[in-house]
Amino acid sequence: MTPAFLSVRDLHVSFRTEDGVVRAVDGLSFDLDQGKTLGIVGESGSGKSVTNLTILGLHNPLFTTVEGEIVLDGQELTTAHESELEKLRGNKVAMIFQDPLSALSPYYTVGRQIAEPYMKHTGASRKAAWKRAVEMLGKVGIPHPAERAKDYPHQFSGGMRQRAMIAMALICDPDLLIADEPTTALDVTVQAQILDLLKDLQREFGTAIIFITHDLGVIADMADDIMVMYAGGAIERGTVREVLRSPRHPYTWGLLNSMPRLDSDLSTPLSPVPGAPPSLLTPPPGCRFHPRCAFQDRVGGNRCVTERPLLAPDRASACHLTAQQKHTIFIDEIKPRLRHGQEDTA
């Protein structure tokens, strides 16, 4: 078996704060193959964004401790020197962020900001880089790219700014694109355009994508594989089909049940996960989800409180329930609540 293109092993990231040490990521492992899309889903504070800043070494080294391994195409990144990381960033690995207005500098033209990484990584002249930037702007669907490249970000609309971000990220033809909630700040019709654009560009460039979002609908649309994160760790992983059609973790069940859908049954209320995510300053012992879990009494003994279930490579979910239990609970108790609403045929 060839090693994965990106392989993260037992990653721990913690921040020192005034209140104590926040364990933002705690024992995370995953793989990503070339040209594939991994969707990472989780709520705020689940550690999904931190993980991805750490891949590129963009965390603040003053307050952050990183342990574990991040291997990209055979290169270890957690111990890599800053100058080596700089060569990767924007070149082999690119990122796009949530809010394209604050993620683009207000002081420089869009064209310049797009051209910069191309000049840096290919050594192209200013003129050649500008030409390439205009070309990329056209590719992501900005009308009149040659004129619009001279505009500043505030002269662009929200959707156009995110397109410009994508042009900037793809200008050096990266092997991996990390997209951190790239459509959360956009309107739904614009989001649909951007998601389609990303999919089409991925097909053309053969880029692997890590797609971070809190929206399961977006993930279902974009990803090949899904990883669900909760309180700093992965709790479930599998193909989109596996995770969405036969989920195996109580938290995933909770997410699916609490999410209103356009086709959900309206006669029953949503079934939210009770409580709120734990503080990462003092995470609960054992399974991090147990204080909010309705199924812990079905696990023998006190294991949910004493022993932290881990997501091993051969297991799809980090839960102490047996495979059989997970299957029966999902079929008997969770799935009926996910049924479609009656189609109104009057």
């Binding site: 963009l58 960033r89 690119a94 683009l104 207000p106 002081y107």
Partner: peptide, 26 residues
């Protein structure tokens, strides 16, 4: 700590470049 400074770092610009071009301008 601005996001656009982080973006500039994420696209491979050196710490010095980002410091004097992006952060300084702001």
């Amino acid at each position: 700590q601005e996001e656009h400074v982080r973006t500039a770092r994420a696209k491979g610009m050196s710490r010095r470049y980002v410091f004097f071009r992006y952060a300084w301008r702001g």
